[in-house]
Write a protein that binds this DNA or RNA. Structure first.
Lengths: 109, 109
DNA sequence: ATATTAGGTTACGAAAGGTAACAAAAAGAT
DNA sequence: ATCTTTTTGTTACCTTTCGTAACCTAATAT
């Protein structure tokens, strides 16, 4: 017995956000274009996984990758319109987390 | 070099939603308390994973499990206040998916 | 005794995640 | 010319999580 009247668009969206790190990377990029090492410094993610996620995000049309052939090469990632449109979701998650998530230490943020 | 000024509550929230199936299960339960088999019928998830996720959701305080000792046993899962408070997030994801996700087939939903 | 039904659990191979060492490319130093 | 440094990855290797299918339990019905 299997009846999936689930909206495929919604399911797809959930799959994207429901992938480890993706939401946090988007949050990081919401504050503006950033280079690889900056994103990495802001999150407890390994280089391997960050590369992987950024590649996926490019393929999904959430972010763009730009290479600047400078001194040591500079690579910047920037959210597309589609990516920036995720901001309300991230903000709602922030609100919810603030109101409902308990953390041992007194980390009020 | 690692500088994580990331809010732990936010990170925790992201970890919860950023886990496969969790978002879709919450969406399913937003329409009211449901028994195990109903949830399973509404999603392409295996019984094993559904059990696992529901257990995690109980531990996180997102849902409760009630056993009714009837004919064949009936087990119902229901969102807590904390769980119901996720509704705005789910709605935002629905909106975003509707506006931005493209699907091959003409599944407008 | 056997079958049925709901809600799981177990075993096992496949896929994804995490860590750490290594690589490419290009400028600058020796 | 060779060596070093910097940034952005990549590879090898091991652990954890997923996914499928078979099996289990308890209570009734046949």
């Amino acid at each position: 017995m299997s009846e999936f009247q689930l909206c495929p668009k919604f399911e797809k969206g959930m799959q994207m956000l429901g992938k480890r790190w993706t939401g946090l990377i988007i949050n990081q990029l919401l504050s503006g274009p950033q280079r690889f090492s900056q994103i990495k410094a802001g999150l407890p993610i390994s280089g391997k996984l960050l590369t992987e996620r950024l590649k996926e995000m490019e393929e999904e049309g959430l972010a763009t990758r730009k290479v600047y052939a400078e001194m040591p090469v500079r690579v910047e990632y920037e959210l597309t319109e589609k990516g920036k449109a995720l901001e309300p979701i991230v903000k709602e998650i922030e609100k919810w987390a603030h109101d409902w998530v308990e953390i041992k230490e007194k980390d009020d943020c």
